[in-house]
Nucleic acid binder design. Structure first.
Length: 614
DNA sequence: TTAGGGTTAG
C-alpha cells in the first residue's frame, strides 16, 4: 500500500478491505490524517463505519468524539458498531446523548437505535418505548425496516403483543419481519400463536424454523421444540448453518435426556458441525446436565478454541456435580489461558466453594468479581454467597447479608436460610426467621412443611397448629412428584404412589427387600416431610412409594449391570429419600445419579456428592 | 449506512 494514492482509491479501500482488517483500517486512518483530510465528512464517516465493522469500537468512539459535526450517517455507523460488538453500555449512553441533543434521526438511525435498545434487554423497556414514540412522530414513521426492528425489540423484551401491533402495520412483510414475530411469540411461551404464525408464513425457511424451535427451547418447551425439529427434518429443510442445532442440543440438556443428546451429537457430526464453538459449548452442557461429566470433559478438551462459555460450562458442570476442587482448578487454567470470566462463571465458582465449605475462597472470589472484573453482583451472586455462609454454619453473617443486600430477598431465599438454621441446630434464629417467613405468606408448600418442622422442633405447638390452619385455609397442596429413569434405549416416568406399572410386583418386591436390609443397618424412616395428618404407618407407606425410589428400583431391575442409574426428578429430594438412596448405593453396590429441582446428587458407597446439604 | 434465527446461571 502506498500513501500517495488517489482519494477515490482511499475511499474504496476503506469501504471494502478495511472493514475486515483492523490493522489496515488504522493504516488508512493514519494516511487520512497525513493527507490533512481529518474531519472531512465522507472520509470520517466511512472510517467510522470501517472501525465499527472490524470491531475496533474504542477507535470508533474516539473518532466520533473528535468529529466537528455529526450527521445521521455518523450516528448510525457508531450505533451499528456497538450493535455488532454487542456492547450495550456505550450504545445506551450514545442513544441518550443523541435524544438529548435534539437531533432528528433518520430511518437508518432509528433502525440502529431500536436494535441497540433490543440488545440492552428487557430492563430498558422504557427507553425502547421512548424511541418507538419518537419514530412514530418522525417523518419516517412508515419505514418497514424500522418497524421490523421494533418487532424484534419487543420480542426481545418479552412483549410480543406490542410487537404484533407493529407487525400488523407493516405494509410489505418480508422474511425478516415474519421471523422476528414468530421468535417473539415462541420465546415468551406463546406456543400456540408462534405455531399459528409459522403455519401462515410464506417464508418457511431455516430462519423461521430456527426462530420457532429456539424460542420454544428458551421458554422451557423442549418437548414441542423437539417434535418440530423432527418435522423440520422430515420436510427435508437443509441445515446450512448450525444455529438450530445448538438450540436442539440445549433442549436435550434441559430435559436431561442423555440418549437423545447422544443422537443429536451424532447428527451434529454427520452434518459436519462438531468443531463449531457454539455447538461444542452446548454439548458440554448437555453431557454435564445428563451427569456424564467424563463425556463433557472430553468434548471440552478436544476443542481447539475455547471461549468464556466453554470454560464456564465445564466449571459449572463440575461444580454442580460436587467436584469443587476440580472446578476451582479449571478456573485457574481459564485465567492462565487469558479468558476473562463473566457473571455466570462466578455463579459456578461460588457454587463450588459453597459445596466444599471454602468460605474465605468464596468471599475472595466475590470480591475479585467486583474489583478485578467490574461485574455488578446480581441476586444470583448474593444467593450463592448466602448459600456459602449458610451451608458452612456462618449463620449470623448469612442473616446480615440477607438483610443488607441490595435486593429484596424472596421466599426461597428465606427458606434456604431457615433450612440452614435447622441443619445447624440454631433454633433461636430459626424461629425468628420462621416468624418472618410466615408473615410474608409463602406460596410453596414445602415452606410450610419447613415452618411446621421448625416450630415442632422448638416445642412451639401453638404455632404448629397455626401453620396447619393456614395450610388448610390456603388449600396448600404439594405438586405431584415424578421421577424419570434413563435406561439408555428407553426411559420411564414414575409418579409418587404409582402402582400401575406392569412390573409393579417385581419393583415393590425389590423395594421391600432393600427396606428390610436398610432397617437391619439402623434405618428409621423420617416422616417429617409428609404433609398430611395421618398415622405413622401411613406416612411411612407414603415415603416408601416416593417416585425416585420406584424409579431407582426399576433401574436396578432393568439397567445394564454395573452402569450408573440416572434419575431426573421434578421436585426436591426429601430427607428420607436422600438417606434411603445413600443406603441403596451401598447395599446394591451401585452408583446412582439424581437430578432434582435444585441440584445434582451422586450417591456412591453410602455417601452423596452434596454432602447432605441441599 | 438500517431490520430476523444460536451456547453458559436462574
Amino acid at each position: 500500500m502506498t500513501f500517495s494514492q488517489p482519494l477515490h482509491t482511499l475511499q474504496s479501500q476503506l469501504c471494502s478491505v478495511a472493514r475486515k482488517s483492523p490493522s489496515l483500517a488504522k493504516k488508512l486512518h493514519a494516511q487520512i490524517i497525513k493527507a490533512g483530510l481529518n474531519g472531512h465528512e465522507p472520509f470520517s464517516n466511512t472510517l467510522l463505519d470501517a472501525y465499527g465493522k472490524c470491531g475496533l469500537i474504542q477507535d470508533a468512539l474516539q473518532l466520533f468524539d473528535a468529529l466537528p459535526q455529526r450527521d445521521s450517517v455518523a450516528w448510525a455507523s457508531l450505533l451499528t458498531a456497538c450493535n455488532l460488538t454487542n456492547l450495550p453500555q456505550p450504545a445506551l449512553s450514545i442513544s441518550r446523548s443523541l435524544l438529548r441533543t435534539g437531533f432528528h434521526p433518520d430511518h437508518f438511525v432509528f433502525a440502529s437505535l431500536v436494535k441497540a435498545c433490543a440488545n440492552l434487554g428487557p430492563l430498558h423497556v422504557k427507553q425502547g418505548k421512548q424511541v418507538h414514540a419518537r419514530f412514530l412522530l418522525s417523518p419516517f414513521s412508515d419505514d418497514d425496516v424500522v418497524k421490523s426492528s421494533l418487532v424484534d425489540m419487543y420480542a426481545k423484551f418479552g412483549l410480543p403483543h406490542y410487537g404484533r401491533a407493529v407487525f400488523d402495520s407493516i405494509s410489505s412483510l418480508n422474511s425478516i419481519s415474519w421471523t422476528a414475530m414468530i421468535s417473539g411469540y415462541a420465546r415468551s411461551g406463546r406456543t400456540f400463536e408462534a405455531c399459528q404464525l409459522f403455519r401462515e408464513t410464506p417464508y418457511r425457511n431455516l430462519f423461521a424454523w430456527t426462530a420457532l424451535i429456539s424460542g420454544l427451547v428458551q421458554s422451557g418447551n423442549g418437548v414441542d421444540a423437539f417434535h418440530l425439529f423432527v418435522e423440520m427434518r422430515r420436510e427435508g429443510v437443509s441445515i446450512v448453518d448450525p444455529l438450530v442445532l445448538s438450540s436442539v442440543v440445549g433442549a436435550c440438556a434441559n430435559l436431561a435426556v442423555l440418549e437423545l443428546g447422544k443422537q443429536i451429537h451424532g447428527l451434529v457430526i454427520t452434518l459436519g458441525y462438531e468443531s463449531c464453538l457454539f455447538i461444542s459449548n452446548s454439548l458440554i452442557d448437555v453431557y454435564a446436565k445428563c451427569s456424564d461429566l467424563v463425556a463433557a470433559k472430553y468434548i471440552f478438551c478436544k476443542m481447539c478454541r475455547k471461549d468464556v462459555v466453554s470454560w464456564t460450562s465445564i466449571i459449572v458442570g463440575t461444580a454442580q456435580h460436587g467436584q469443587a476442587e476440580m472446578a476451582l482448578a479449571l478456573y485457574d487454567d481459564m485465567v492462565l489461558a487469558g479468558v476473562k470470566p463473566n457473571e455466570v462463571t462466578f455463579v459456578g465458582l461460588m457454587y463450588a466453594c459453597s459445596h466444599a465449605g471454602l468460605v474465605s475462597k468464596g468471599r475472595a472470589l466475590f470480591r475479585s468479581m467486583v474489583e478485578d472484573y467490574g461485574i455488578k453482583p446480581s441476586l444470583q451472586h448474593y444467593t450463592c454467597l448466602l448459600d456459602l455462609f449458610s451451608r458452612s454454619g456462618h449463620l449470623d453473617e448469612a442473616e446480615n447479608l440477607i438483610r443488607t443486600m441490595p435486593f429484596n430477598p424472596d421466599e426461597p431465599t428465606w427458606a434456604a436460610l431457615l433450612s440452614a438454621c435447622k441443619h445447624h441446630g440454631n433454633t433461636k434464629m430459626a424461629v425468628r426467621i420462621a416468624d418472618h417467613l410466615l408473615k410474608i405468606k409463602p406460596e410453596d408448600p414445602s415452606s410450610y412443611i419447613l415452618l411446621s418442622n421448625i416450630y415442632a422442633g422448638a416445642g412451639l405447638w401453638e404455632k404448629v397448629s397455626k401453620v396447619r390452619k393456614v395450610m388448610m385455609v390456603m388449600e396448600v397442596k404439594k405438586e405431584p412428584g415424578y421421577s424419570c429413569v434413563d435406561l439408555g434405549k428407553e426411559s420411564h416416568v414414575f409418579y409418587a404412589g404409582e402402582t400401575s406399572h406392569p412390573m409393579k410386583d417385581e419393583i415393590i418386591g425389590l423395594m421391600r427387600k432393600l427396606d428390610a436390609e436398610m432397617r437391619k443397618r439402623g434405618y428409621v424412616p423420617d416422616t417429617s416431610s409428609v404433609l398430611h395428618d395421618m398415622d405413622q404407618q401411613e406416612k411411612e407407606r407414603q415415603l416408601f412409594m416416593h417416585s425416585e425410589r420406584l424409579a431407582v428400583a426399576y433401574g436396578l431391575l432393568k439397567a445394564v449391570p454395573q452402569t450408573i442409574i440416572r434419575v431426573v426428578k421434578n421436585l426436591r429430594v426429601c430427607g428420607d429419600c436422600h438417606t434411603v438412596l445413600k443406603l441403596i448405593s451401598t447395599i446394591a453396590n451401585r452408583e446412582i445419579h439424581v437430578r432434582d429441582a435444585k441440584r445434582y446428587h451422586h450417591f456412591k458407597d453410602g455417601n452423596c456428592s452434596c454432602n447432605d446439604f441441599w
